[in-house]
């Protein structure tokens, strides 16, 4: 029995360099033991809710280590060229930004990296936040303009 146990532990050790929370849930070790199963129902429910919340809240943006305030790399999960290129462009529009680029390090990993380097006076995180908000503003404008164009077109096609 002891043998089999050590065997099951070995792969866990090998995966030490991966953050546990980032593994898919199916690959995470089952933390819940028998003791917690025997807890009061109400408490048990609360725990389940907690777990669910953590699952839903998987953070999709991460600051990569080795970053300084003005030069940082971010890792976006489950994003690609759709967001990457537009974001890169809009961040580069910011005059306080020295450099911005994005990359998809490997096509079979759902990850997108963004590198931002700013001039003194602002931080890379601020630049990214501003970029996201600017892009939202652009979307708002395009959306409004499209609705307006739709109304215009309808009016014209009725009158003609």
């Amino acid at each position: 029995m002891a043998k089999s146990k050590s065997r099951t532990e070995a792969p866990q050790d090998a995966s030490e360099d991966v953050v546990m929370q980032e593994l898919p849930t199916s690959h995470q070790p089952d933390v819940q033991d028998d003791a917690s199963m025997a807890e009061v129902d109400a408490e048990d429910d609360a725990e389940v809710e907690d777990e669910e919340e953590i699952e839903d809240d998987t953070q999709r943006v991460r600051l990569l280590p080795g970053s300084t305030p003005t030069a940082a790399s971010f890792e976006f999960l489950n994003e690609g060229h759709t967001l990457g290129n537009a974001l890169r462009y809009i961040i580069m529009k910011n005059p306080d930004v020295e450099f911005c680029a994005y990359a998809i390090p490997h096509p079979s990993e759902p990850k997108m990296n963004v590198r931002i380097q700013t001039y003194e006076g602002t931080t890379a995180i601020e630049a990214l936040q501003k970029g996201l908000k600017d892009l939202q503003d652009v979307c708002d404008v395009v959306s409004d303009k499209f609705v307006a164009a739709q109304k215009d077109f309808k009016k014209k096609s009725i009158s003609s």
């Binding site: 953070q59 999709r60 943006v61 976006f76 994003e79 759709t82 967001l83 537009a86 995180i125 990214l128 936040q129 996201l132 908000k133 892009l135 939202q136 979307c139 708002d140 959306s143």
Partner: peptide, 13 residues
């Protein structure tokens, strides 16, 4: 959909 993507990114950031 783009808006939702951006909003979730701002939230996570």
């Amino acid at each position: 959909v783009i808006q939702q993507k951006l909003a979730s990114m701002i939230h996570d950031l």
